[in-house]
Amino acid sequence: MIQFLLVRLSLFAPILLGVLLIGFLLLQVVPSDPAAIRAGPMATAEVIEAIREELGLNRPLPEQFLIYLAKVLQGDLGRSLISNAKVVEELAATLPPTVELMAVCMLWAVPLGIALGTMAAVHRGGLLDRMLMLVSVAGVSMPVFFVGILLIWVFGFWLQVLPTSGRGGPLWTLEGWQSILLPALTLGCIILGPIARVTRTSVIEALGADHVRTARAKGLSWPKVIVRHGLRNALVPVVTLIGLQVGFLLGGAVVTETMFAWPGIGRLAVGAILSNDLPVAQGAIICLSLGFITINLGVDMLYAALDPRIRLG
């Protein structure tokens, strides 16, 4: 297991380097001048040029990237061009709300998706199977902004039982739970359908294996056969999908946090891009990329725990 972990960690550095390079180059093509943004609309050309020299914007792009990379390795992501606050401080303030949102989303969507997929596999071809798959297809087909608008209209304006914007407080308070329900439901609908569909396919395949028939012939109850021999062997592709869906969650979080005025990294990134605040946008990209890489590393570890052949191979 240790060797397997070290091999996966060895891929961490080049992937992160590639993310930093791509993020740096993409933000260089934005038609804006960071020096002019920091100087303000009333600044003279001499002041703007002095700020460009201070920020190193007059240097060649390779040299700018090396300077930027050296600062990132030291934990210095620069300062915001708008607020002049440290980017690290702004990310630290918006990271907990995003983590809370994704945790609550996964908390209800993943178990429910696995349960629905297993139920559909057990009742394969029946009415329940068709109804569950219809719901999952609908969940896959609807875009996240449509789901969010629908939930806002139903629970915010029609029933008026849940707040539709802002973060009411931490999760251990009633206001915190009330404010996070609609964003978490919106995000969870993105991954619920795919998880249910993949679980159904995997469980059907696992239940048709020889060892499952042997366990059934030995007299094990059908629920034990499903859980011990069917579902566990079917979880490897499901875990793969969950890891991939994290990327969609991060993308959906940008839209969801903007819709519900949730003070997370996604909303911070959108605001930074719209205001041409390049240091904050680059910091948000790094933070989101680190989260995606870390979760995929966790998925690899779950592979090894669920199927020893993976780590031995």
Rank of each mutant, 00 (worst) to 15 (best):
N84M: 14
Q28A: 09
L235E: 04
R267G: 04
F4Y: 15
C189A: 10
A206M: 10
K86V: 11
A121H: 03
L181H: 11
G113L: 00
A184R: 00
V246F: 13
L26E: 02
F155Q: 10
G56I: 03
R124L: 09
V198M: 05
L312W: 15
E49T: 12
I152L: 14
L297K: 10
V137G: 06
G266E: 03
A45I: 12
L61N: 04
A272N: 10
V72A: 13
A45W: 14
I152S: 07
T164S: 03
S165C: 05
A281D: 08
V7Q: 11
V72F: 09
I285L: 07
W172D: 14
E100A: 12
V154N: 08
S179R: 03
E53V: 12
G252L: 03
G168F: 02
L25Q: 03
L249H: 01
I295Y: 11
F292E: 02
V246L: 13
A284H: 11
G23E: 02
P194K: 05
A43K: 10
W172Y: 07
V246A: 12
E89Y: 15
V280M: 03
A206Q: 14
R167N: 08
A184D: 00
L306G: 05
L231A: 02
Q178F: 05
L278I: 15
K224E: 11
L235Q: 04
V19E: 05
I226V: 15
I286C: 14
L207F: 02
N58S: 12
W158Q: 13
C287P: 09
S136E: 06
P223V: 13
I114N: 00
I293A: 00
P96K: 07
A50L: 05
S141M: 05
L6N: 11
I204G: 07
A234R: 05
F146S: 12
R124V: 01
T214W: 08
C105Y: 01
T240H: 08
G169W: 03
T44R: 07
S32L: 09
S141W: 05
V255D: 01
G283M: 13
D129V: 02
P31D: 12
R311H: 04
A281W: 07
L73A: 15
V212M: 05
T199L: 00
